[in-house]
């Protein structure tokens, strides 16, 4: 197995003014292997979003290196193999569901027939086939989350990056999403998801990383971490690690 994500010494410092700086990430190191589901956990403001943004080339790191699928992130071509679902996805509200997929399909440069076929498949997978001709303005929060997932899978990505994927979903939707993710894992896809739902992460992730104040405080399999830190539950583990850091 080879590393799909390889992050070395990643540091991001936000300059607010000449004197004031805020550390987003500090000397962050991480490797995620092919075919695993990796869960990124941390309280709000811990640096999860900063990390994802750097990985997607939306912001540039102050220091360090990110390699995805063996390529540096400033190479846009890498993104052909990445699917991304942002937190609270918001799309062009004047497009319909199928128009949105069509638009992103063009951005991915998918051939016309592949684009058609994948859109159809994905719309029924996420359960939106009936409302594909409705404009997104009229979609509910959960529907937006689902169409977002469809967009993220449109290019049949090798790596899927999900930021808080089940926030907007009801329990049934959350369940369906989890099953979908496990199915994707079986297909050999690598998934990186950030969340603060401990139960969600506990159920589907192979390994987890706990972040706070821009640092990776713990990384490994959940069972091993519990044993290592001598705690019973995931919740205790999380609280212990984050509190120790303060």
């Amino acid at each position: 197995m080879s590393a799909v994500i390889k992050i070395e010494n990643l540091t991001k410092i936000y300059k607010l003014s000449k004197r004031r700086e805020v550390t987003g990430l500090l000397n962050f190191n991480l490797e995620v292997e092919e075919g695993e589901i990796f869960g990124l956990l941390g309280p709000n403001g811990s640096g999860k979003t900063t990390l994802l943004k750097i990985m997607l080339g939306l912001i540039s790191p102050t220091k360090g290196k990110v390699e995805i699928l063996g390529k540096r992130m400033d190479n846009v071509e890498v993104k052909k193999d990445i699917g991304f679902l942002p937190e609270n996805p918001y799309y062009y509200e004047y497009l319909t569901g199928s128009e949105l997929l069509d638009f992103y399909g063009d951005i991915f440069d998918l051939p016309e027939n592949v684009k058609r076929r994948r859109s159809q498949e994905l719309l029924s997978t996420v359960g939106l086939a009936k409302v594909k001709h409705m404009v997104l303005r009229n979609y509910s929060k959960g529907m937006l989350e689902r169409i977002g997932l469809a967009c993220a899978l449109l290019n049949n990505p090798k790596l899927l990056i999900l930021d808080e994927p089940t926030t907007g979903l009801d329990p049934i939707g959350g369940r369906e999403t989890r099953d979908l993710l496990l199915g994707l894992k079986k297909e050999g896809k690598t998934i990186l998801l950030s969340s603060h739902f401990l139960s969600e992460v506990e159920r589907i992730c192979d390994r987890i990383g706990i972040l706070d104040q821009g640092r990776l405080l713990a990384v490994g399999r959940l069972k091993e971490l519990l044993k290592e830190r001598k705690v019973e539950t995931f919740e205790d583990l999380f609280i212990k690690i984050v509190k120790n850091n303060v």
Binding site: T11, T62, K63, G64
Partner: peptide, 8 residues
Amino acid sequence: MLRPDPHK
């Protein structure tokens, strides 16, 4: 400078 990117 910490900037790692020589292309900049």
